[in-house]
Every structure is written in structure tokens, then in C-alpha cells.
């Protein structure tokens, strides 16, 4: 398989459309014939990240998906508020989500740990006031 790169834009201001990008990614990976269990892992992890880009970063951003024969690499990049303490953010149950986000069904503080669980390699960098970038790799072979 040759190297393929897809880029998706996530609008930051529309909660009802959050997940559109992840849905397209899922569809594209299916068309490439990626095994279903791997597609499911990528979809869940990217969707968690996409939701974070809308409910926390609030700016939305870009998701890039790179596929080669060995692995799928996803990069989720936003230019939002950033995360002051990554160790805290990565711990299960820690959230800054306000009540209105919880009323929508999110804000259990499980998203980042869950992304880390599903990805074979997980990396997050963030700068307060500048934005957050999450890179995940999923092995194909």
C-alpha cells in the first residue's frame, strides 16, 4: 500500500456536528480494507479527541490521518486554550468540564486515558493559550 494522507477540519462551534470528521475517517479506513478491530480503535480514539477539540479547546482544529502498510498515524491539532497540567489531564476521572457539558453526556475525565489505551503509541503536547496536539499511532502489522 502506498502512503496516503487525509486531512479533516473540525469546526469548533458546533457540538451537534462534533464527530463528523471521525465518521469520515472511519468510512475512509473501511474503504482501504483496514481490519475492523483496528478501525474501531482508531474511530473511538479520534472521536474522543474530536470531542475534546470542541468542548474544551472550543476552536476546533485539524485532524490528519496518515496510512502506510505498517501503521496508521493520527494527529489532532487545535489552537485552543491548552492544558496547564498534562499529568492531571491524563489521569482517569480528572475533568474541567462544566455541568452543561456533562448534561450532553461528556466530561467523565476518561477521554485522554481511553485514547492512550486504544493507541499503540500516544503523545500529547500542549501550551496554555496556544493549543494542544495529540499524536497517536496504531500498528497494522
Amino acid at each position: 500500500m502506498e502512503n496516503l494522507t487525509f486531512t479533516y477540519t473540525v469546526p469548533g462551534d458546533d457540538f451537534t456536528r462534533a464527530g463528523d470528521a471521525s465518521s469520515k475517517i472511519k468510512k475512509n479506513l473501511r474503504e482501504l480494507g483496514i481490519p475492523p478491530a483496528i478501525i474501531r480503535a482508531v474511530a473511538i480514539a479520534v472521536y474522543e479527541g474530536e470531542i475534546n477539540m470542541v468542548i474544551h479547546a472550543k476552536t476546533g482544529g485539524d485532524i490528519t490521518v496518515d496510512v502506510n502498510e505498517k501503521q496508521i498515524t493520527t494527529v489532532l491539532k487545535d489552537t485552543g486554550c491548552g492544558i496547564p497540567d498534562l499529568t492531571l489531564a491524563m489521569s482517569e476521572g480528572w475533568t474541567t468540564a462544566p455541568d452543561e457539558v456533562r448534561a450532553l453526556g461528556f466530561g467523565a475525565g476518561m477521554g485522554l486515558p481511553n485514547m492512550k489505551k486504544y493507541a499503540d503509541i500516544f503523545d500529547i503536547t500542549s501550551e496554555v493559550g496556544k493549543g494542544t496536539t495529540v499524536t497517536m499511532k496504531f500498528n497494522l502489522a
Binding site: F15, T16, R17, A18, G19, R40, I44, Y47, E48, I51, R102, L104, G105, F106, G107, A108, G109, M110, G111, P113, N114
Partner: peptide, 23 residues
């Protein structure tokens, strides 16, 4: 909480919920 569904549910499951948005 969809957060909990994403973190804990296996596939081929039925989801019972009182939440009703597109997410």
C-alpha cells in the same frame, strides 16, 4: 454518560440511555 460508554463498552452491545442528542 457517553464518556463511560466509550471507555467501557464492548462491541455487539445494546445501549440503554435517557440521553437523546446526536452524539
Amino acid at each position: 454518560m457517553m464518556s463511560d460508554v466509550l471507555a467501557f463498552v464492548k462491541d455487539k452491545a445494546v445501549l440503554f440511555t435517557g440521553l437523546m442528542n446526536p452524539q
